[in-house]
Every structure is written in C-alpha cells, then in structure tokens.
Design a protein around this nucleic acid. Structure first.
Lengths: 253, 253
DNA sequence: GAGCTTGGTGTATTTTGAACACAATAGTAT
DNA sequence: ATACTATTGTGTTCAAAATACACCAAGCTC
C-alpha cells in the first residue's frame, strides 16, 4: 500500500495536521433500483475494502471533518450526516498496527497507534454522487447491502450498526429527502422503506400514513411515459420535513 | 486546583497512561423523592461544577473506561451505561487550555490539549449510590435536574443532550430497572416516567400499558405501614426486561 | 365511624393501525 | 378497436390501542 518514503511522508503530514487516536468512518447509504447501497473503497491490488474515512484536523470540529471526508469521496456538499457511535475496542485496528512495523518505529508510525473511530452515517441521493477513490484506493463504488465484499477491521460491524440505527430512526424521524430524487412516486418511496426495513408494507396504509405526516407535496402532473397507470409525483415539503426532523413523527408517551 | 508540582506529576502520569485527546464524561441520573437528579462534582474553592469524567487508558476499551470512571466516583459496579454522543467542538474545553499555561509549556501540559469527549449516561439506583469526591473535588453530590449549578465547559449541554436521549429511549426501551429500588409501587414508577417526561400521565392507562409490556412481577404482599391504602409492590422481571431491551417495546413499522 | 387521601379496577369513546376490494389508467397483444 | 394485464389510486371495515372518565377499597386521622 505504502512504500517506505510514502509512509514517512504520510506520517509526517498526519502528525502535524491531525489529532492522534481519532478517526472518522462514514457509512454512506444510497438507494438505487430498489436496493440499498453502501459506498466502499477497494484497496489497490488487494481484496480489501474499507469505509470512506479519515482523520480530524487539529482545529476542526468533528462534524466538519466528517463533511470534508465525505465531500472528497462523493463530491457532495451539505449531506445529511449523523453521528451514531464510537467504536473503541483497543484491538479494532490491530491488523493495521503491525502493517508497517518494519518500516518505521512505533513512535513515528501513525498506523501503529490505537484509533477510536467515530461512526457517521450519511444518506445521499444515489444519482448525484460521484464516487471518487483516494490515492490508495483502486475504486470507490457502491455495494449492495445484501452482498457486501470483505470489509476489513470492524467495518462490517460498523455498517451493521449504522443500519440498525437507521431502522430505529425510521420510527421517529422522516427519512427519504436525502435518499430520493427531487420527485418520486409513492410506490418508489415505499420501496425505500421496505428495503431499509427488509419487510413488505401495505400499499394503501403506507400511503395514508405517509401523507398523514404532512411532509409531502403532490405535483399536479403525474409521471407519463411508463407502462401502466401514470402515478402521481411527490416531493418533500422541506419546511415541514425539517420540522418533523426536530419534533419527531409520533408522540410516543 | 493544581500547584506546579502536582500539575507536573499529573501530566506525567496522564501522558504515560491515557490516550491523548479523548475524554469520557458521564451523566449519572438518579431518582429520588420524585425528582430526577444528576451527579455533579464541585471543585475545591471554586463555584465550578463538572460531570464525573476521566480518560481512557491506552489499552482499555472505552466501555470499560466509562465503567471504571463511574466506579471511582459512585462506588457502583455493573451500571447501566449508554454511550450517546461525542462532543467534538475544538473550543469546547478552551477555558482549560489556558488554565495552567504559565506553569507548563503546551507540549508538556495535558490540559492544553484539545479533547473530544464521549458522553455516556448512566441510570442508577439513588439509594445505593455513595457519591465519593476525588482528590480535586470538594464534593460529589446529586443535583436536581431542574436546579442545576453552574456546570463548566459544555457540561450543561451534555446533560441536556443526555436527557433528550433518555426521553427518546423511553419510547422503545423499558427503563426503570436501574433507577428504581428492587421493589416499588406502580405510582412510584409512574412518577419516574412523569419526571423524565416532565408531563402528567393517566394513572390507569399507565398501569395498563406498563403491565402490558410484561416486564413486571407483582408481589403477593402489598406494602404496609404507610398511610392510606396499601399499594402492591412490583419488581422487574429481569428476563423479560432484558429481552425488551433488545427487542424494543413497540413495533413501529 | 365520618372524612380524607391514596390505590385498584372497569367501561365507554375515540383514535389509530391492519386487512381488504374495487375502480381507474396506460400500455400491450390480438 | 377491444380485451387483457400490470400498476396506481382510493374507500370501507374490523380490530386493537390510546384516552377519558367513575367508582370502589383500604388505611389513617379525628
């Protein structure tokens, strides 16, 4: 992955720019053709995949760091990003600690350090993402959540944890604004929910409930051209959507 | 707070034992006499309060660190502890950075570092806690959530955030096992919910719903001795309770 | 035991969620 | 054109859950 000189350069840069011991990993969810996808980076010449991640600059708020990291990988700005958990097992990056141990002594070697990683998940509009690999990656691409490649370290666990959080979120927050295109049909939105929950939902009840939230605007024009009956197009009412994000969807107690 | 020699000693110990840049702060909730309480440490000779917190040892899982820290402050073991958020604003501990700047140069001064703090909240049984101040604190005591003293740094915000999380949690997880004594009456449990939610609940409906969760055992013997009608005593059915923690209380979608 | 307070339980009403059936539309095959 | 099919839109019924409310029981004070 790195030769010795590259390693030395990287470690020097890292040491002077980033906070020790802390990294950020992002689980980027996208939705396309009825499938929930995750963005993964493939390492050059290896069957190794990682989540897009990075480090926090010494004087940078962590939310900003997560946004910066994500922008580099997706080209997207102003992404819906949510911190969901810190992974702090001392052994979580053990395989990395020994990786370059022959090239640099531990006190100079950035990778020999223990790292806690702050997990963020992002919901993005699939078609607007421009997946961009970094220098050490062969590719940055979407993977079906149901058919993930071999993510290294604890990254598979991080993805699982992000998905659990997302499913929970669904119960008290609106979702979809960041995953759907501007305009979409009700069945398309339903498909998103069904995919996240891995569960069939009733068409009519879904629609009623969704409309009941008051976060959708129905367009005058139905979508034409497809086979079968032309469905209505909806878009999110951003104002109500934002409000629902804050207030939550249902009372609970 | 520290004189120069103490500071030097502390920084040396800290540097060799703890991870840089990372701290843990615990919001410890207790419940007593119808009031939700938070544990706070008061600094000697200052009108300054802090949450019980500490640092992560170099080879210690963060959950273990949180437990250790809490044990040192409360004497309690095996506490219900939940990570809820990382606070990572670069300025969040700004007041600390300058505190000892005349005593030690920044590169030796532990307190001049930026710290991210991992917020945990704990729910504990008030009567079993024996709040114990550490060496730098004048006192470790309970404060009414409605009447907090002047918490420094962003600790007031951390408390607020913990409470928000707790309220949300209430909707899909059972709560109370860690906050209530072994045996309690239904009105007492209701009071806990009302306090957390800051909201009156209907006596009968609360009871029905609570019993519906199937996590309570009613004792044969009602509590005697008090004035008025003797209420039944309940305890949590630990097995069902644990299960409800995992599965969640209501379906949602 | 009258009066007060607190705790236990039942019932009617409203609201919400789940299940289900039929009508409308746009293409396709004939 | 006409029948057919796949898909979407909508209404209605039934059951379950949440809500509101009223009454009885028990123990203490006086």
């Amino acid at each position: 992955m790195f030769n010795k000189q590259e390693l030395i350069d990287f470690c020097e840069t890292a040491r002077s720019n980033y906070l020790d011991h802390i990294s950020i990993d992002c689980v980027v969810f996208g939705f396309h053709e009825g499938q929930l996808k995750v963005l993964g980076l493939k390492i050059k010449n290896e069957a190794s995949w990682y989540l897009p991640g990075g480090f926090v600059m010494k004087d940078e708020p962590i939310e900003m760091a997560a946004n910066r990291i994500l922008k580099e990988r997706t080209g997207l700005d102003e992404i819906f990003l949510q911190q969901f958990r810190v992974f702090g097992d001392p052994d979580r990056a053990r395989p990395h600690h020994d990786m370059y141990k022959d090239m640099l002594p531990p006190e100079e070697n950035w990778f020999s350090m223990r790292f806690l990683t702050i997990g963020y998940y992002a919901l993005v509009d699939f078609v607007h993402v421009n997946p961009t690999p970094d220098g050490h990656s062969e590719s940055c691409t979407w993977y079906d959540l149901t058919d993930l490649p071999d993510f290294k370290l604890d990254h598979a666990q991080i993805i699982k944890s992000a998905l659990d959080t997302l499913r929970l979120q669904l119960n008290y927050q609106p979702i979809g604004y960041n995953l759907m295109p501007k305009e979409f049909t009700m069945p398309e939105l339903q498909k998103l929910y069904e995919t996240i929950l891995d569960k069939k939902l009733d068409r009519r009840n879904f629609q009623r409930r969704m409309l009941g939230f008051g976060i959708l605007n129905r367009s005058e024009q139905p979508r034409k051209g497809g086979a079968h009956k032309a469905p209505y197009l909806y878009s999110f009412d951003l104002k109500n959507y934002q409000n629902a994000l804050k207030e939550g969807l249902k009372g609970g107690w």
